[in-house]
């Protein structure tokens, strides 16, 4: 008599797209091994130190100085990237000009170039006898071995983030919004401020936070131009390396963990900002 009652498994709907188990499994494995496990190891290492000792190491003058330099330079670099990245994305999307494809390809060079090469090139250019340095130093502007050098190196490596996040959104923006704004009396700058900018804002925020996070951790491009004077132009990731070389694993872990926390806080803030900006997408439909 059991044959007459259909079992629940017969009714269970099948997934439309096959391969969920396999693809999801591989994704989780990858994320686990390559991203999550190292972070957990780092957190454990840091936790081993204990909160008091952690604070003590983190607030040591040399560590504090390195963190301060890194954060200030990264912030300035992000501002540079924000302004110029937005400008470049705008130019690349909105205008047609000879050499546009070449310019578009150039944007990616900071990603493609080994960062050490970038660092060496920048320090050669800005050195007292370099092309830029020869012009700037007589004016009393010193770039190498100062926070400005650190900033420039960071900006160089992170500019593609802003361009490449904003560009596709700007490309997809329907010109009808701006046309509608124009017929309603909005001149181009007003239309940009009220219509275009809000549309690209979420992508813009992502671009800026990515470039900030990248600047926090940038090593290769920065160490050559920074000069690495303790208390003055020593970046946090270099200090972590120095601690490692001194076999001070706890010291290294504390600095690394501080950078990690900074990056995570930033990421959370950027997500929050995005969510607020995307409220209008609505609950329906």
């Amino acid at each position: 008599m059991t044959a007459s009652t259909p079992t629940a498994s017969v009714i269970r709907p099948k997934r439309v797209l096959p391969g969920f188990g396999l693809t999801m499994g591989l994704t989780l494995t990858y994320v686990g091994i390559i991203i999550l496990l190292p972070i957990i190891a780092l957190v454990l290492k840091g936790a081993e130190v204990g909160p008091l000792r952690f604070l003590e190491i983190a607030s040591a003058p040399r560590t504090l100085a390195a963190l301060k330099l890194t954060i200030s330079a990264a912030a300035m670099a992000s501002v540079l990237c924000a302004v110029y990245g937005l400008l470049m994305a705008w130019v690349l999307v909105r205008y047609d000009f000879p050499g546009k494809r070449l310019l578009d390809a150039l944007i990616d060079i900071p990603f493609a170039l080994p960062t050490a090469v970038a660092g060496l090139t920048l320090s050669a250019l800005f050195a007292g006898n370099g092309w830029y340095g020869a012009v700037l130093e007589p004016q009393g502007i010193k770039v190498v071995y100062t926070i400005w050098g650190v900033t420039i190196a960071m900006a160089f490596t992170s500019i593609p983030f802003v361009v490449r996040t904003v560009q596709p959104v700007l490309e997809d923006l329907d010109p009808q919004y701006e046309q509608a704004a124009a017929t309603l009396g909005a001149f181009p700058f007003t239309a940009f401020r009220r219509i275009v900018f809000p549309a690209i804002f979420p992508a813009f925020v992502v671009g800026i936070s990515l470039s900030f996070a990248r600047s926090l951790g940038e090593f290769g491009a920065v160490v050559f131009i920074a000069g690495n004077l303790p208390m003055e132009t020593e970046i946090a990731s270099l200090l972590a390396v120095i601690r490692l070389e001194e076999y001070d694993y706890n010291g290294a872990a504390v600095i690394a963990l501080t950078l990690l926390i900074l990056a995570l806080v930033l990421l959370a803030a950027s997500n929050l900002l995005q969510a607020r900006a995307m409220r209008y997408k609505g609950k329906r439909q």
Binding site: Q176, Y177, A180, R194, I195, P198, A199, A277, Y280, K281
Partner: peptide
């Protein structure tokens, strides 16, 4: 406009 072009964020 044919597809209204309402400003989505307003």
């Amino acid at each position: 406009f044919q597809h209204y072009a309402l400003f989505p964020h307003m």
